[in-house]
């Protein structure tokens, strides 16, 4: 059997006295879209940097396409494309040059580089900006170019650290659409994002991390079903309703001025609550990944 795209066992990353990744184990199969979710400082970027062979591991085992990141970083790097969180395009170069100059680092010859650059510029809708120096591009265009550049070596694995952060909805939609066609073409995609709804729709499997640990792993639907049940009933947080819920023995969570009740049988419970508590407002919606995320990682702010 072929080696998985990524195999991590007891993966550890320590910076001086901070443990950023605390013995994480996971497997990503080839062709999968795999997501890392978690609040800032959860360890997502550290894991992705170790997979990209730019940050050494402190301990544990980490293999990409069956090769150890410690022993064969150059071969691994030839097979992957990396889109980092920060823009690191060449500001003095045009869109086209950003692609062709980058191709040299992969030993791609000039004619082939020119061909691929042309294709990628078309694929990411940058034709009109081909010969524009990138300083004058919008944020969305720069991000598209960064992704295009990461594909110049036709990578088997693409790693994207928050590819849509800071972009407007149109730019985000375009990027997801392009990533979707990349997935159809069979690439393995690894990404981190703060947009939970996008992760839920796009990822085959994902992990939610916090404090360097993996809290939960699975397909978005499995995770939501296992952790939340089918539905969330939302009602108002007023003393009469709280008293009533406690009397009825219903388990609830208070979020600001809202009360959340998770359930697998929303219809029956709604009828019971309306009859017993008569709240001023009550609604039912499907449970989402965001509910799981907030329940697992809490509502405290992370700076």
């Amino acid at each position: 059997m072929a080696a998985p795209a990524i195999l991590a066992e007891g993966l550890l990353k320590r910076y001086d006295d901070l443990v950023a990744v605390d013995r994480c184990s996971f497997v990503v199969e080839e062709g999968e879209v795999f997501g890392f979710l978690g609040p800032n400082g959860a360890g997502k970027t550290s894991i992705m940097r170790m997979i990209a062979c730019v940050s050494p591991t402190t301990g544990g085992r980490l293999e990409v396409f069956g090769m150890s990141v410690d022993d064969r970083p150059r071969e691994i790097k030839a097979l992957i494309g990396v889109v980092s969180q920060e823009n690191n395009l060449d500001p003095d170069l045009t869109v086209y040059e950003n692609l062709t100059v980058f191709a040299r680092f992969f030993e791609i010859d000039r004619a082939e580089a020119a061909r691929r650059a042309g294709e990628l510029i078309g694929f990411f809708g940058l034709d009109e900006k081909r010969d524009t120096v990138i300083e004058s591009l919008s944020g969305g265009m720069k991000r598209r170019l960064t992704i295009a550049r990461a594909l110049i070596n036709r990578p088997r694995l693409v790693i994207l650290d928050e590819p849509t952060t800071g972009l407007d909805p149109q730019a985000r939609a375009l990027i997801w659409e392009r990533l979707r066609s990349l997935r159809s073409a069979g690439s393995t995609i690894l990404l981190s994002t703060h947009y939970l709804e996008e992760a839920e729709r796009f990822c085959d499997r994902l992990v939610i991390m916090d404090g360097g640990r993996i809290l939960v792993e699975g397909s978005p639907a499995e995770i939501v079903a296992a952790r939340m049940g089918r539905a969330v009933i939302e009602t108002v947080d007023d003393p009469a309703v709280i008293d009533c819920l406690e009397r009825e023995g219903v388990v609830f969570e208070r979020f600001g001025d809202l009360v959340h009740i998770t359930t697998d049988a929303p219809d029956a419970l709604v009828q019971r609550l309306v009859a017993a508590c008569n709240p001023s407002r009550l609604s039912v919606r499907n449970a989402t990944l965001e509910d799981v995320f907030l329940r697992l990682t809490g509502r405290g702010l992370r700076e």
């Binding site: 730019v54 150059r74 790097k77 980092s84 992969f106 070596n153």
Partner: peptide, 14 residues
């Protein structure tokens, strides 16, 4: 400022 070295070490360059 330009993070060029970060971009380069993500390629087969050391």
């Amino acid at each position: 400022y330009q993070k060029t070295f970060d971009a380069l070490v993500a390629t087969p360059v050391t």
